[in-house]
Write a protein that binds this DNA or RNA. Structure first.
Length: 677
DNA sequence: ACAGAATCAAATTAT
DNA sequence: TTGATTCTGT
């Protein structure tokens, strides 16, 4: 058993009912969750299969599984379900597909596919509008509203057109035998709440449930938790209201308060001892978060020493910022005899990484980057996955279109148009329409031949993929498929130069390796594998020996990580806190603005609390934003931390007074603050 | 049907 | 400045 402090032990041992653990940053929450699972198995006689632990990211799930393995041993950790909400959703949907009128082989549309779908429905090219519609619909789904309920709400909020789109969107998904990310939570919830038999089945399976990052749950996920645990309510939710940073995704902190209302016997435990950061860093973090209205009173403390002072540095622009951070980081590594992987550079938005990458490359500093475009969003990867998706579920029209047209094989816009019209008329999938007699009269012989060729190509692989029990190994099938498609030639024909073609081809090979390594885990062949892929956003290959490299990460992606030395860049008004575009900066809704600032403040809090020993903030006097140079001011959060623009601590009164803050800012702009260190 | 050229819009965060 | 889409000629 790992050593635990008093509060942690309480959290682990409490089994008399629902339990909420408020775990401050660095207070050992993963330790509590894994410790509790081990306790359930070893001391309380729970069988591993009865225990379910839910996280939000695959990374968190994976790490938890690893820790459990070393705690319990491989064999005893085996049956425990540790997965993301979405993976559990897939599992429920697959097992209960019939109840929902869904094929077991349903496709999971990623957000790009979903966007394409909406584009079709609305018949517009206005990207901003499409994004907005998608966002609104997603929020409705996250709030567990069906189209009818959404329509009622839409009347008040002025999103009537979005609610109309919602209807057609759901209808289209159904026609494709497809679901989107939000459905992975929503549909299981619908099923459990409406079907007593299914509900009883799952409740008898889930004897104990643990939820990580509870503050990030949305209304849908909360209800799912309620349905899964039922009357018995044997669960532990672990979270930190100060680290709630996914409100824009539908997460609602109210779920914390709700827990207390809905479960009067809820046992509340606070973890306030921090094992991560120096006192200086914790003080700054505490001060910043104090500016938010607090749901629960909580103050982090640590036994660590005061440590290094926090530095705040003004830069001319983002290039200077990048260069300076690279140089200072490099020097610090030498001075401290540290490793590259002891350093992280954190930022608000992905685009900030660009300049940093350049600067690091110039100085030959190795780095890894997390967040940003995922491996599975790359063109070449999506191309190949479309083939797999189509083989598994031939009603998946988006996959059909993609696979049929890449590489070019004589099926173009004209053919697809005709095909699409026929499919619409007959109310069948594109694949089905492509096999229809009537096509003879609608297409030229060459077009028809190309189409028929494609259809039989897909059918050939469908047969091969679907022949239990002695189905041929997925590995072989994948190899054949790749060479049959002729994708390598296609890449070298279409890429602008050989170098990028080579890079893309390498991605493809990486994908194949990854698929093969996972194939064994899915005994039902391609189906499970393909559904699994849709949920994996980041390539989790960092597990094989982490390289010694500086970590570049968005603040959002940094949650849960820790580093000895952290550089938090772009600490400016407008960027952190991020305040949207200038034109809608009008304070139309003061409450909405305040809420946004509060979430940004929590983001700042997350950033600060990633640091163990040293923390360095930088901000730019000018920054290129939306193709224009903009003059920037230092973020309000710096003053809230109790620091002035030079990084010196200031007294309490100065922190609080806005007038003083303004003065400081003026002084700062007047004097030419130079780089420290 | 397709490849290269020309034009145009663009910036939060991500399962 | 990039990156993506549309246009144009074969």
């Amino acid at each position: 058993m790992i050593p635990l402090n008093e509060a942690q032990q309480q959290a682990v041992r409490y089994l008399d009912g629902p339990c909420l653990v408020l775990a401050g940053a660095g207070s050992g929450k993963t330790r509590v969750i894994t410790g509790k699972i081990a306790y359930l198995v070893q001391e309380r006689g729970y069988s591993p299969r009865q225990i379910y632990a839910l996280t939000f990211t695959n990374k968190a799930a994976l790490e938890m599984a690893h820790r459990l393995e070393s705690l319990l041993g491989r064999s005893r950790a085996r049956g425990i379900t540790i997965s993301t909400f979405h993976s559990l959703g897939v599992r429920i949907l697959r097992e209960e597909a019939q109840e929902l009128g869904l094929k077991k082989t349903f496709s999971i549309l990623d957000s790009q596919d979903a966007m394409g779908l909406i584009q079709e429905i609305v018949q517009t090219t206005d990207k901003a509008r499409i994004k907005h519609l998608m966002h609104v619909i997603s929020l409705w789904k996250n709030a567990a509203l069906d189209p009818d309920e959404a329509a009622a709400v839409a009347n008040q909020t002025g999103e009537v057109d979005a609610s109309r789109v919602y209807y057609s969107y759901q209808a289209t998904l159904k026609a494709y035998q497809a679901v989107d990310f939000d459905d992975l939570i929503l549909l299981p919830l619908r099923l459990l709440s409406s079907n007593p038999v299914v509900r009883a089945r799952w409740q008898s399976r889930v004897r104990y449930l643990l939820v990580d990052e509870y503050q990030d749950t949305n209304a849908c996920q909360y209800q799912l938790l309620r349905e899964l645990t039922g009357e018995r309510a044997m669960f532990t939710a672990v979270g930190d209201d100060d680290q709630a940073i996914y409100g824009w995704r539908g997460a609602t902190i109210e779920n914390l308060a709700k827990l207390q209302q809905d479960y009067p016997n809820l046992h509340l435990i606070k973890l306030e001892q921090n094992y991560r950061s120096s006192q200086t860093i914790l003080n700054a973090a505490n001060k910043v978060i104090q500016a938010n209205p607090k749901l629960f009173d909580k103050k982090l403390w640590s036994e660590h020493g005061v440590g290094e002072p926090i530095t705040v540095t003004r830069m001319d622009d983002e290039h200077m910022e990048a260069k300076s951070v690279a140089v200072r980081l490099s020097a610090a590594r030498f001075e401290k005899q540290a490793n590259w992987k002891d350093f992280a550079i954190l930022y608000r938005s992905n685009q900030q990484a660009r300049v940093i990458e350049q600067a690091l490359r110039e100085l030959r500093i190795p780095y890894t980057i997390s967040g940003g475009q995922s491996f599975f969003e790359k063109q070449e990867i999506r191309d190949l996955l479309a083939y797999l998706r189509l083989i598994v579920n031939d009603e998946d029209d988006p996959a059909f279109i993609r696979a049929a047209t890449t590489p070019r094989r004589g099926i173009g816009q004209a053919s697809l148009q005709v095909l699409g019209e026929l499919a619409g008329k007959l109310q069948v999938s594109l694949m089905r329409a492509a096999q229809h007699e009537d096509l003879k009269d609608l297409l030229q012989p060459r077009q028809l031949e190309a189409l028929r060729g494609f259809v039989s190509f897909v059918q050939h692989y469908q047969k091969r993929a679907d022949m239990p029990p002695d189905r041929e190994p997925v590995e072989k099938l994948l190899d054949n498929l790749l060479s049959d498609i002729g994708y390598e030639n296609h890449l070298f024909d279409t890429a602008p130069d050989d170098r990028s073609a080579q890079a893309r081809w390498q991605n493809v090979l990486d994908l194949m390796d990854w698929l093969k390594s996972r194939a064994a885990e899915h005994e039902d062949g391609l189906v499970g594998l393909v559904q699994h892929i849709s949920l994996v956003t980041m390539l989790e290959r960092q597990q094989d020996e982490e390289p010694d490299a500086v970590k570049l990460s968005t603040l959002h992606a940094s949650k849960g990580l820790e580093f000895p030395h952290v550089y938090l860049i772009g600490v400016e008004e407008g960027l952190l806190p991020h305040l949207g575009r200038e034109d809608d900066l009008t304070v139309d809704d003061a409450q909405a603005l305040a809420n946004r600032i509060q979430e940004e403040r929590r983001l700042m809090y997350v950033g600060i609390t990633r640091a163990q020993r040293s923390l360095h903030l930088t901000w730019c006097a000018r920054r290129r934003r939306a193709r224009q140079e903009r003059v920037c001011e230092i973020s309000r959060f710096v003053a809230e931390m109790g620091l002035n623009a030079a990084g010196n601590e200031v007294s309490e009164q100065e922190v609080i007074s806005p007038a003083k803050r303004l003065d400081m800012l003026k002084n700062l702009l007047a004097s030419k603050q130079k780089v420290r260190g």
